[in-house]
Design a protein around this nucleic acid. Structure first.
Length: 501
RNA sequence: GUCCCCAUCGUCUAGUCGGCCUAGGACAUCGCGCUUUCAAUGCGGUAACACGGGUUCGAAUCCCGUUGGGGACGCCA
């Protein structure tokens, strides 16, 4: 029996900003692979760029991943025996491994200055060549090196790239081979001694026993350099899988001007994490069976396979995300949405903070009544205006409601309805139905001619949720302690009275 | 500029040994039904193999070229 090493994948973001949907998708696909194969998902913080990395982004990063329900097995907060998991805490390790390469003459010190290198680059570009390192310091003798060190120059350390071809079998793109003459001797250690991305990444992936490197396709060309580093260490090379880029609706790289792009923004706008995960899973991956696109996370995990990942870039489509979020919203019962929706209602001044059970129960019914109209939780308060709004004197009626109350028969319906409501207060679902029956009899109106005027008088609008649902919400809402008053049926009808006279 | 990669409806995609494809699904869009209205929902329609050459009895599927797009070429990740 052949022993198969357990799958170990990693998501290695840089804490240089908010978690972006493109990165989230990379994290997700890694996580899918880990969970599908009962492997480990490792979260590593790549903060070797001191200029741009900010510690506060790290916390945000973890929080965003938690919100998405992506759990990790090892990271800065869970030691799996392969730590530390923050690259800035691993500098000693990089020094040590860099020294080893130097000792074995697989790397060399380079004293070229940045201006000097830039000059050469410009010349090569002008000649229409691919800019690459000249190899100037490759052949420096130990004495030369010692002399320059003594004079106070601080060198970088570069890998000695061998002749020939390097290649790998990408799990999504297939075979990608190139000639090593396309590659400069990559800098491993900067002149200040800090490691570069390509070096720290490889050292960590070796030491953390990463089996599959899954990342954005912008890293394809880095992969060749990195493989050369694995070779220099005599380490086994992991499998690679590169994911196509996520683009904005205009086909350009996704950026702020395309609207929300960070997980934080999607959360604030009231998208459900499961909807965002489901949508992102379908961006570049498709399940083996057709037609089923709303998939629970566990269904995605069980079906996920890198061989079904597309090779071409995908455009992020907010309209489809909206549809998906709506569909998740409608799948959930109102009472399971109350907790999530509460903050939006509180900040809109519709309920007091920390509502009691009565308000919560009422709110759940309110949400059930209007949720088919919204894409996101943040749209709920404006939709709920049909319950609250009616306070101005006289109340504002929309165009549809006004025309519904134009005809004398329509006003008769509304007046009769009011008369009966006055007698039967408070209105229950049962009494509402009875009253409507009596109005029907008294006015000889039915169907649209009957319901439209009632709706207009009661809600001030030409359309909205079913009246049978709205009426009890008005009645019950009017008895609750809310920062903004909900008017009962009678109050509403009295208020419109001047309008329908 | 040089190298690498990609190319099916407006969008995400199915298509994995070339024939079952007069190209399927989902979103969006349009129409119809249901309903007192809107929404939701049900049913149906419009809509694509970038172009040009090959190979083959047969190509969306294989090969070459063109065009278009993306990426790489850093002491960024």
């Amino acid at each position: 029996m052949k022993q198969v090493a357990p799958v170990r994948v990693r998501f290695a973001p840089s804490p240089t900003g908010y978690l972006h949907v493109g990165n989230v998708r990379t994290a997700l696909f890694n996580w899918f692979v880990a969970r599908h194969s009962q492997g480990s998902f490792i979260l590593r913080i790549e903060d070797t760029d001191a200029e741009r990395s900010r510690p506060e982004y790290e916390g945000q990063l973890l929080e965003d991943l938690r919100w998405l329900n992506l759990d990790w097995d090892e990271s800065v907060d869970i030691d799996g025996g392969f730590g530390p998991y923050r690259q800035s805490d691993r500098y000693r390790i990089y020094q040590q491994y860099a020294q080893r390469l130097l000792d074995e003459d697989k790397a060399f010190r380079c004293f070229c200055s940045e201006v000097e290198l830039e000059e050469v680059r410009q010349q090569q570009l002008a000649r229409g060549e691919m800019p690459r390192y000249s190899g100037k310091c490759r052949g420096l003798s130990p004495a030369d090196v010692a002399a320059r060190m003594k004079s106070g120059l601080s060198p970088t350390q570069r890998l000695r790239v061998r002749q020939g071809t390097v290649g790998f079998l990408d799990l999504v793109f297939g075979r990608i081979d190139i000639d090593t003459n396309q590659i400069s001797d990559p800098v491993l250690l900067r002149s200040d001694g800090s490691p570069t991305y390509n070096f720290s990444c490889v050292v960590d992936d070796i030491l953390m026993r990463i089996t599959h490197v899954i990342r954005g396709d912008g890293h394809i060309s880095n992969t060749h350099r990195q493989i050369l580093i694995y070779e220099a260490f005599g380490a086994s090379v992991p499998q690679f899988a590169h994911l196509p880029t996520v683009l904005g609706p205009d086909g350009q790289k996704l950026s702020k001007r395309h609207g929300a792009t960070s997980v934080e923004e999607f959360r604030v706008q009231g998208y459900l994490p499961e909807a965002l995960v489901n949508y992102l899973a379908l961006l570049g991956w498709s399940p083996p069976e057709e037609g089923k696109e709303i998939l629970a996370i566990k269904e995605i995990v069980s079906r996920f396979d890198l061989s079904r990942v597309s090779r071409s870039p995908a455009i992020f489509d907010p309209a489809k995300l909206n549809w998906m979020n709506r569909s998740y919203l409608n799948q959930k019962a109102g009472d399971s949405l109350v907790k999530l929706a509460e903050p939006y209602f509180v900040s809109a001044g519709l309920i007091h903070p920390h509502p009691g059970p009565e308000v919560q129960a009422w709110l759940a019914r309110v949400i059930d009544a209007v949720k088919t109209h919204v894409d996101t939780l943040s749209q709920l308060p404006q939709e709920v205006d049909i319950i609250y709004g009616f306070e101005s004197d006289p109340p504002e009626l929309d165009a549809d409601a006004q025309s519904a109350l134009q005809a004398p028969e329509a006003r008769a319906v509304a007046q009769e309805f009011l008369r009966l409501v006055e007698m039967r207060e408070p209105v229950t679902p049962e009494s509402y139905r009875e009253i409507v029956g009596q109005v029907k009899e008294a006015t000889r109106q039915k169907g649209k001619a009957l319901f439209h005027p009632i709706r207009a008088a009661l809600t001030g609008r030409g359309s909205g949720p079913e009246l049978e649902r709205l009426v009890p919400l008005y009645e019950d809402g009017s008895r609750l302690d809310l920062p903004r008053k909900v008017m009962s049926c009678r109050e509403r009808l009295r208020a419109v009275l001047p309008v329908i006279r």
